[in-house]
Design a protein around this nucleic acid. Sequence first.
DNA 1: TATTATAGTTAGTGTCGGCTAACTTGTCAA
DNA 2: TTGACAAGTTAGCCGACACTAACTATAATA
Lengths: 126, 126
Amino acid sequence: MTIRESGEMYLETIYILSQKSSTVRGIDIGAYMLFSKPSVSRAIGLLKKEGLVITDEQGYIKLTDAGEKKAKIIYERHQLISRLLMDLGVDEKTAIEDACRIEHYISEKTFDAIKKHVDKYGAKKS
Amino acid sequence: MTIRESGEMYLETIYILSQKSSTVRGIDIGAYMLFSKPSVSRAIGLLKKEGLVITDEQGYIKLTDAGEKKAKIIYERHQLISRLLMDLGVDEKTAIEDACRIEHYISEKTFDAIKKHVDKYGAKKS
DNA sequence: TATTATAGTTAGTGTCGGCTAACTTGTCAA
DNA sequence: TTGACAAGTTAGCCGACACTAACTATAATA
């Protein structure tokens, strides 16, 4: 069972929250994603099974090395797509929102192409 | 009930097939999309309910005016995103595939921005 | 200490959108 | 005329992924 869009979103969220705070709880994830506690609970359970997430003794949620690696890739994609869209003239809010949905559906090849473009011309805005 | 990703794909397919042949049947749609007959049957039923599709006396599937309008928009999006990706250096096959998945998730604003870009710089390839 | 609030889980539901199996119907050829 | 095939539909299933209601466990506070 490989990870899907929903799982990617959770991973990315955990990654983002981990950078703001050293402790991430299910409830924080739910608050960020606007999902209910049971939805988060189930999703985290699945990510644990896949070895992408663990919970420590206090119940805090952490990414495993594998999870962190994946999360970074997803996060990087999000950033890059946002930048591309902003380069094209899309306002930041819309760019971030659209990137969030698109990021799960682009191939490696397209991602590389966007990377090249943004490295060359882009990133008006960090 | 508003149309979703799956419905958009069916509409676009009907649109494409309608341009190749004046008669479009469920079986043709299934062959194109690689979906089973019952899946197509159900989807077409839903599109009929939404007034986007009708079947004529012989059972052939046609877009209504509303359906054609929607289908055109979706098709145009697909074309534009493909061009954008090709402009970025993505090969045609990959560009078309990725565009197919992305097209359902971009906002009007982003679409407009892509349109401007492609009109200005793009379309190396029709 | 007893109460209350917070966090997590369990159980069960609903929608979307695929699927197979099996039935119906119409056409065409033996 | 009958038998077979092609196309469509019906019935029912499944996975993904949200939800609510309700239970549990723990921590904080009156």
